[in-house]
Design a binder for these strands. Structure first.
Lengths: 343, 343
DNA sequence: CGACGGCCCGTAAACGTTTCCGGAAGTTGT
DNA sequence: ACAACTTCCGGAAACGTTTACGGGCCGTCG
């Protein structure tokens, strides 16, 4: 029947029906151990029967914990962010925490305001993906006693700030060795915005691999872009116009790589026969584009999950070995790279 | 200085500093009109200065409204859902509502449990994308007084249930007319799971267009699949093995279409020269795959936004002209379709 | 046999708001 | 000059929990 008597059932009713006080009900609710087994059993049964569910607001107010975790992402849509979000929300669900999703639209002010609100009794902590804030601003949050972990920091952060990121440099190195191994010598790089950790670390790998192969980097082969498809296409077009064009391009993410393929195709070049392209991310796009992208895999969902486990330990006030986790990357070879063309 | 005195500032402190009661502060906070202009001004200034932010839990407990809206999606990652989520969260932000994201993993029980919790004081209402529940279960929610709107109903729903969807039939019709106009006569359909609204309505458009062109539908050309790439590839492979294979396939979503292209290419067929393919959704994938997909555009983000505006009106207890909104679809012609090949 | 310690459990205070009710002061109408 | 409204604001209850504190009961130990 369950006649929807919908004055929602409160702890009071459960207590009355069980013939105990609300304190006792609360205790069984929270798994405290100072309740007699048979009492616990009785109360549990009634909770079950009446379909009682604790009011989160009341709990939040009283206990200071809300069971909500804010997740700040620049945007929801791009696969890059939704992959992280997906991993994070799954992990959060397993910890019985709810996700308060907050897209910041890449706007610094909006992110600050949002965080401000989140701190104030709305959430227990937060995941901040690709934050707009400076290290100082983030430290301030930390000092205010707020729990959060940064995923994929945009700028270099102070050591005190918990973060999880990917092994950019090693990934870039793997990509370059692959290209070098195929005989390429003129390898261009299409980077992301300079100053970003992801850009600079990958750039470091690019240079290191070049140096290890005894190749002097040519500044003309290094062009800065914006991690978008169109940017990748433009950059590639410029690169191909060079008097001595590259035989391979290392794009710093998959979008750029896709743009590179489009630009190459636009001027009749075949990939990989005439131009090799390697990306970074291994987003879903990498497998559906053709030729399928050779790219460096970042474990995005895993990064989300890892951030959650860091955060939950933070929430439980555990002591830490390390606040910084760097997840490994590895090259996935598909169809967009091949031996250097014979001249 | 803002010395982070971080005993967080409460309404009490603001009231004391302004020399008024907390009731008055609450009134200016909520924009009530029974406050003298200069008092309002004074209080507002102090709120500003002290950086006061209302505690949501307390507000939720006292006022019964939390400012949170649950968004239930099967999964976060697939572009289809993240596009809807993106539109919805943007719109929710504009209404000063926060998003409580709940991925259900396509599991009926999990969705039910989640909804149960959401109802109980956690949220003011919800958006349910592609719900797992039957119409009856949803009606029960409605009767319990919970506010929600369904986005892209999976099954046919009772009229009382607010929903927003896309014009499946018309979209399918447009796709078919395009193919028919190119001279195709043997046009296969790769459908989604039968019983789903999206599948059945698109199937209706498929049949209607065929009928209008005086073509008898061939059951062999209609194969059911699962909206995934691999499914599309398998279905297409089977179709191409037919004694009299189709010259065009109408895939009921972009994933299926991408699978179709892959399968065609796998056996050396060119798209669109040897086989035309049209998809449905116009997801981001449609533009990066090659050849770029001719597909029916569904305004996914717009559906999210629309659902939010429906929900907010529901929350304000407004009376309604209509509870069902169907957003238009339109064919986007790109490169995956062409004239029927000469035999 | 009395004191002490554990186990269970109830009482009540607190959490920070919103909102109902009513009262003081000021305004208008007669 | 008095009644009847308005306008503005304060007091206090209520929202549904968690948790500190203390007390009754029982068993154990000296």
């Amino acid at each position: 029947m369950a006649e929807l008597a919908h004055a929602r059932v409160t702890i009071r009713e459960v207590a009355d029906e069980a013939g105990v006080s609300i304190a006792t009900v609360s205790r069984v609710l929270n798994g405290r151990d100072d309740v007699a087994p048979e009492t616990r059993e009785l109360v549990s049964r009634i909770i079950q029967e009446r379909g009682y569910i604790a009011n989160r607001s009341a709990r939040g107010l009283s206990a200071g914990r809300t069971g909500l975790v804010g997740v700040l992402v620049p945007l929801v849509f791009p696969v890059y962010f939704s992959a992280i979000l997906s991993g994070a929300s799954e992990a959060l669900y397993e910890h019985d925490l709810r996700v308060l999703l907050s897209p910041t639209g890449h706007e610094h002010d909006r992110e600050v305001t949002l965080l401000d609100r989140l701190m104030h009794g709305l959430t227990d902590g937060a995941l901040i993906v690709l934050p707009e804030e400076s290290s100082e601003e983030l430290e301030r949050l930390l000092d205010a006693g707020y729990n959060f972990v940064v995923v994929d920091p945009r700028l270099r952060l102070n050591d005190r700030i918990p973060s999880v990121s990917a092994a950019h440099t090693s990934g870039a190195d793997q990509a370059m060795r692959h290209l070098l191994g195929l005989g390429h010598r003129r390898i261009a790089a299409i980077t992301g915005p300079s100053g970003w950790v992801a850009t600079e670390d990958r750039r470091r790998g690019y240079h290191a691999a070049l140096a290890a192969a005894g190749i002097l980097p040519d500044p003309a082969l290094e062009v800065e872009s914006d991690f978008e498809i169109a940017g990748g296409a433009d950059a590639t077009a410029a690169l191909l116009d060079l008097p001595d064009p590259p035989t391979a391009v290392f794009a710093f993410n998959d979008n750029l790589a896709i743009g590179a393929i489009q630009a190459a195709r636009a001027r009749g070049l075949r990939v990989p026969e005439d131009l090799s392209v390697v990306g970074f991310d291994d987003s879903e796009h990498a497998t559906i584009v053709s030729p399928a992208l050779t790219t460096v895999r970042q474990p995005l969902a895993e990064m989300g999950r890892t951030a959650v486990s860091l955060l939950t330990r933070l929430l439980e006030r555990q002591r830490f070995e390390t606040l910084h986790i760097e997840l490994g990357t590895r090259l996935v070879v598909r169809e967009s790279t091949g031996p250097v063309p014979a001249r």
